[in-house]
């Protein structure tokens, strides 16, 4: 399953519209563009990950013409399990599905993501690698973001902080509580010419964490 995937089906697009209306109803999401403008420029959005709804929220905050060219990156171990998840992952969200298991995977995730970028699309990635269910605001980034930045140096890396969604639907609950969520887009980053891996990841973590409203009130 390497290479660009097919465009979402008609049914997929209908479900997509319903999901976005529902997300607005529950969270009244609005994007706060603090570091970059909502313009049609190729980007890698990297965000904190607290809930399965995260990329729906980022999507909802994006203007429509950007949304159709922005694909989330998600784990195939989760999204290919069962036909409903497969439909949602592929047809509704048009996700780039990567295999997180290093030992069994057939495709290199960095190659899959680079292919999508080469096709002109923007990506949404969650560099923590998994949902953060701890009390800590942010988990340490996995190295994927660095490898992606190395593979496509020219693409802007935009930090995106999603706030409050963990209160809307805590892990293990299935009824969402309507609460206002915000999606804050920060200033773009680029990998420095001589920047080492850990140095870059620490800088990216700090840039994301700085967008959290809690960081601003302390």
């Amino acid at each position: 399953m390497s290479g660009p995937q097919a465009k979402p089906s008609f049914a997929g697009r209908m479900v997509q519209a319903v999901v976005i209306v529902f997300a607005r109803f529950i969270t009244a999401t609005r994007g706060r563009w603090e570091g970059v403008a909502p313009i049609d420029e190729q980007r890698i959005y990297f965000a904190n990950h607290v809930s399965h709804g995260d990329f729906v929220l980022i999507w909802t905050a994006l203007p429509r013409r950007l949304r159709s060219r922005t694909r989330p990156v998600a784990g195939s171990d989760y999204w290919l399990k069962g036909s409903l998840r497969r439909f949602i992952g592929r047809d509704v969200f048009n996700a780039v599905l990567i295999d997180r298991n290093r030992d069994t995977r057939a495709d290199d995730p960095i190659v899959q993501m680079s292919d999508a970028l080469d096709a002109g699309e923007s990506l949404i990635v969650f560099p923590e690698g998994t949902r953060n269910t701890t009390e800590a605001p942010l988990l340490a980034f996995k190295s994927g973001l660095y490898h992606l930045a190395t593979a496509r140096r020219s693409v802007a890396l935009v930090p995106v902080w999603i706030d409050n969604l963990n209160r809307v639907m805590p892990k293990g609950e299935f009824v969402p509580i309507p609460l206002i969520c915000t999606v804050t887009f920060g200033a773009a980053l680029h990998l420095g010419e001589t920047e080492a891996k850990q140095e870059f990841l620490t800088r990216a973590e700090a840039a994301l964490l700085a967008l959290s409203p809690k960081a601003n009130t302390l």
């Binding site: 009244a28 409050n164 209160r167 805590p170 609950e173 009824v175 509580i177 309507p178 609460l179 206002i180």
Partner: peptide, 15 residues
């Protein structure tokens, strides 16, 4: 109500 609840001290147990 959505605005009000956003600003108060709810916890997991209030879900």
């Amino acid at each position: 109500l959505r605005e009000f609840i956003t600003l108060i001290n709810t916890r997991r147990a209030d879900h």
